[in-house]
Design a protein around this nucleic acid. Structure first.
Ligand SMILES: [Mg+2]
Ligand SMILES: [Mg+2]
Lengths: 449, 449
DNA sequence: CTAGTGTTTATAAACATAGGT
DNA sequence: GCACCTATGTTTATAAACACT
């Protein structure tokens, strides 16, 4: 384990109590008459003064979207049960009822103001909104926005999208204390994803429960980053104020921030970069007015404003896949199934290629989202629902604009999953869980054994 | 070279004189005062009574689309010059003028009624229309529908699309005399893409000029078909009346029609089939009402109604890429560039894989399209333009509905190419040429040497 | 537990364009 | 002008990881 000689300044975290809205009178934020009590929060929480959520799930209507509800889940809850219950809930509401849920992990030991969202949109859903002007605080919550229903049409949600993920002048703190958003004047703070075990534990309470944050911090400068090419390209492009980059700049940004690629002798990764740029519709090429330069941009409708410093990175991401290089023999496939290790044959076929880490699935990476931001002037009728972990189906709720206690409008970018992904057969609890907590970020499932 | 023991019946071709519409009085369909006269048509044309087009390019307005013109090009014309001229022409018309062109290759020796189109839509363009009810005749023309302009929006063109490529009861003749459209009752006429040299020459006059039809007929039953997986899946699905197939049915259809895949020991090609089904948006999965069966379908907006029997297949498609298996050494890339052969290393890396043929680019396969079909009752103001091969920019034309001499509405599915493909830098004549005549169909460029 | 099915990413490669030597 | 090379861009093939049924 190494430390970067140029570690960015770690700013002190602010403690901001998290409160979605004033609890309605008819909802008792206390212990449920049924259901298992939440396990005792770990005593090492860094925020001893945080407000502890009751054992249950709070469901509030989305401020702007009638079909969406925001669900706050205590970290002690069984997220798979919750997702299963919400799925049934969405179906039970019929075709016109709320069928989209944004999951926020409530804190069991500490409570913070801001929230992390996993925004899973893959280009066919409404875009995320990051409120501009609001100083980003420390992020301590995760959530998922999940669309249980088939996508019927595209919401013209982000006509004037401005997620402005570049806020260079702000002290935009990363979850783990790194800062990597580029500015034109930035002296190229390199990303080193080496973390000590202590650092890992220090932040482990911020992870959604029911997952085990990857174990040892083995990542070094030369380890392959746990991000897909698509993600890294987004990081690169979104690090620039103009949100555009030439191919060469993308190369350089990735090499600068992930030294793994500097060490590659074969230029295959650049081929892959180009391949990804062409393949994915989210990347489009624009030509300068004089036609001399080509810039790669992200289609605004699909831009989740991913930046590296906003992404939760887990140390020890090479612990989930055993990299024992079992030289791939030429036995038929049948004999190869059932191998314990998901080795990807880094020495296979005599090539020096693909010391493959976790395959990041989809582009489900964590994206920060701040609940309080951007004041507006609409009414503040808030409906809050209390849903026990064991799920009681008698929930009553109607769309209503939601405000935080700061009277700031919540703008949430919901996930819209294509019908093919979540329709009936595909809408399993584990799928949703994995969308929330991808392997690429180190989340492991604790088997019941 | 082998012949299929079960060769489909070759029906006799009908001679139907081809005439786009009644020539307007102000347009003289005769020799131009300028431009090179057409070369003498070959005397072996199968249609001696056919009308010979004058030396020039006829441009008529599209019957339904103001921005589209239909261009008939004699086979003796230089298609690259024509495309270049049309490109400039489309740009010269400004943003509101006609900027889409459907290229029809006129016959220099024979003249037929029907036309083949290359429909190049990749999912973002209007869909093709194949008129139902009209008995398909023999196809002898090829064309391309090209969109020079950026795609601004999707035309709701095929709300009730019915290209019905299944017309089993009709004597749907294939260009080369094969018939492979499946019916429920069809006894599984296998596709053998072995053709004698004579057969090849017999049909070679139907190919767009300026290309050399692949030479010897070497393809055997065990050769890999020159179609991409995406194309073959379309062939399969479109062969069924319901336009849907289970995965297993797709496997079987492909194995039945391309025995190459029967002989594969490794199931990698099935992986690729599934990969293509998932990857391409044009394929979507539908579930039966009881939720038991999954059917793969083609999104109607993207269905070009490709069927195998409508596709022009060239013999000897293995002649364009030298398959000399140069065992790939591990020299750095620099040393490998400049190799003469585009060998793909069929023995490389010790695997028995990828005796790769031509890589079919895009999904630019020939699709038949019949000009006369489906009567309607609109006015018949026809504007016809005569454009010499050398291109005179003083063309005057306005959108006007177009009819054939049968007073049947022409419904043409134009190609809409994304901006990224044809904008400025990418809009080269050769690109358009290749879109018209893909390598996968055996078209070779005759160098000027 | 397995096989078939479905989704997504990685990697290599073929081939075209544009620009430089 | 042409031959050749490099960087860039597009598309397909193939293998694989991993989830669901
Ligand atoms: Mg792209
Ligand atoms: Mg698909």
């Amino acid at each position: 384990m190494r430390r970067s000689p140029r570690r960015p300044l770690i700013l002190k975290r602010r403690k901001l109590p998290f409160q979605l809205n004033d609890p309605p009178a008819n909802v008792v934020p206390s212990k449920e008459p049924y259901g298992r009590p939440p396990p005792t929060p770990p005593p090492n929480g860094p925020f001893p003064t945080a407000i502890v959520f009751p054992d249950g799930i709070q469901v509030v209507s989305h401020p702007t979207r009638p079909d969406t509800q925001v669900v706050v889940i205590p970290k002690t809850a069984d997220i798979q049960c919750v997702i299963g219950a919400l799925t049934a809930k969405g179906k039970g509401h019929g075709p016109n009822g709320p069928n989209k849920f944004i999951l926020l992990s409530g804190s069991s030991s500490g409570l913070e103001n801001d929230s992390h969202f996993v925004h899973l949109s893959e280009g066919d859903g409404p875009p995320p909104q990051r409120i501009t002007g609001g100083p980003p605080g420390n992020v301590k919550e995760e959530g998922v926005c999940l669309d249980i229903k088939p996508l019927t049409g595209l919401n013209p949600f982000n006509k004037d999208l401005d997620c402005s993920p570049l806020d260079d002048s702000l002290t935009n703190m990363q979850w783990l204390g790194r800062m990597s958003t580029d500015t034109e004047k930035s002296e190229g703070s390199k990303e080193n994803y080496s973390l000590s075990q202590q650092e890992s534990q220090e932040t482990s309470d911020s992870v959604v429960v029911e997952v085990e944050v990857g174990g040892e911090a083995k990542a070094t400068l030369s380890d392959r980053p746990p991000y897909s090419y698509m993600a890294m390209i987004q990081f690169a492009i979104n690090s620039r104020p103009g949100r555009r980059m030439t191919l060469k700049e993308i190369y350089n940004w990735i090499e600068d921030h992930f030294p793994f690629f500097q060490q590659q002798t074969k230029p295959g990764w650049k081929n892959s970069i180009r391949h990804n740029l062409s393949l994915h519709d989210m990347f489009t090429r624009e030509t300068s007015p004089d036609g001399k330069v080509s810039y790669w941009t992200i289609r605004p409708e699909t831009d989740r404003c991913l930046t590296l410093d906003q992404v939760v990175k887990q140390p020890g991401y090479e612990g989930t896949v055993t990299l024992v290089p079992a030289p791939r023999s030429h036995v038929p496939r049948k004999e190869q199934t059932g191998m314990l290790s998901s080795s990807t044959g880094s020495v296979a076929r005599g090539c020096v290629r693909r010391m493959k880490p976790l395959l990041p699935r989809s582009d489900s990476y964590l994206v920060p989202f701040q609940l309080p931001a951007a004041t507006t002037t609409t009414t503040t009728t808030t409906t809050s629902i209390f849903l026990p972990t064991s799920y009681s189906p008698q929930v009553q709720l109607r769309p209503a604009p939601q405000r935080t206690r700061d009277n700031k409008r919540v703008r949430i970018a919901p996930k819209v999953i294509r019908l093919g992904r979540l329709a009936s057969k595909n809408c399993s609890a584990f799928s949703l869980f994995r969308a929330c907590c991808p392997r690429s970020l180190g989340f492991k499932v604790l088997r019941s054994s």
